[in-house]
């Protein structure tokens, strides 16, 4: 029983990491309607940023979260403006090629600059774990959990109660109608892509103390993030959050009770079953919500 509860805790904490990485992907997918295959590399860029700030200025990754979020917002906005925007009216697979190309380019750029060595930030208190009632929780993961909740809540408030948020929602619901209502759709896309990238920037600052960065680190996370996004119903932030929790818990439990090398099998089977029986995802609004 003790092990089960510990696994559950580990699963939820792991889920909060998947959540914080997936929220940005959901935003980009839900609003700009672009499948961003370079999402993992955005994470990698943010992590190298956090590493550099720690190495050059001695900043704790949590402190460098602020400049990194801003930096990735700008980076995301630029990618949208100069790579995705010109291809928006092109066919979907062209956009996919563009983001896959961007992903490969960023990975190789990192390989060129930093080499294949792994870099980590100096050890800090957040790597330690605390013991509550015989169960261990890593401090950095608790922070991630709290931040994931705060991020979803903050984005919810932003989307519901600001004019910009309303314009973003309008664009996501119907691009043409929003355009007719005077929303500058192109600009909204740039902002939304930037927001999505900023979310993953926050994630990278939180992940950095726990995982060393390498040029391919993004590929470790991104496949799971896609599963989470689809599981959550493609465009729903709350869906992504709960989807991430489910994947985290499944990951943890199946790794222990079945076999560590079969945990991917388990959650991909769940993934396929959901695609077959509820293609709009667990929290999707049903068919025809385009």
């Amino acid at each position: 029983m003790d092990v089960f509860i510990q696994l559950l805790i580990n699963g939820i904490l792991l889920g909060s990491m998947y959540a914080i990485i997936s929220v940005g992907l959901t935003l980009i997918f839900g609003i700009v309607r672009v499948v961003n295959f370079a999402h993992g590399e955005f994470l990698m860029v943010g992590m190298y940023g956090a590493y550099l700030l720690a190495a050059k200025f001695g900043l704790h990754p949590y402190v460098s979260a602020i400049p990194i979020v801003l930096l990735l917002f700008a980076f995301g906005a630029l990618v949208q403006r100069f790579i995705i925007q010109p291809l928006l009216s092109a066919e979907e697979h062209i956009q996919i090629f563009a983001t896959v190309g961007l992903s490969t380019a960023l990975m190789n750029l990192a390989l060129m600059i930093f080499g294949a060595d792994l870099y980590s930030v100096p050890p800090s208190a957040v790597q330690h774990s605390i013991n509550i009632g015989g169960f261990t929780l890593v401090i950095g993961q608790i922070v991630m959990f709290v931040c994931a909740l705060a991020l979803v809540a903050g984005l919810h408030l932003f989307m519901q109660s600001t004019p910009l948020g309303r314009a973003i929602r309008a664009t996501a619901q119907n691009r043409n109608a929003a355009l007719l209502m005077g929303v500058r759709v192109d600009r909204i896309y740039v902002i939304a892509f930037g927001l999505g990238a900023a979310c993953v920037g926050l994630a990278s600052a939180l992940v950095m103390p726990l995982y060393p960065v390498t040029p391919t680190i993004g590929t470790y996370f991104v496949l799971t993030a896609f599963v989470v996004v689809v599981l959550g119903g493609m465009r729903s932030m709350y869906g992504a959050f709960f989807g991430a929790m489910i994947i985290g818990i499944v990951d943890s439990l199946s790794g222990y009770y079945i076999a560590p090398d079969l945990k991917e099998v388990v959650y991909f089977v769940i993934f396929i079953l959901i695609l077959i029986f509820k293609p709009t995802g667990l929290f999707g609004l049903g068919r025809g919500t385009e």
């Binding site: 792991l14 943890s252 076999a259 560590p260 090398d261």
Partner: peptide, 20 residues
């Protein structure tokens, strides 16, 4: 005797199995 993916981001199930 446990196999795991080298790309795994969480080895706690492996560790808890060994611990148990």
């Amino acid at each position: 005797a446990l196999a795991y993916s080298a790309k795994s981001v969480d080895l706690t199930p492996v560790i808890l199995r060994l611990k148990s």
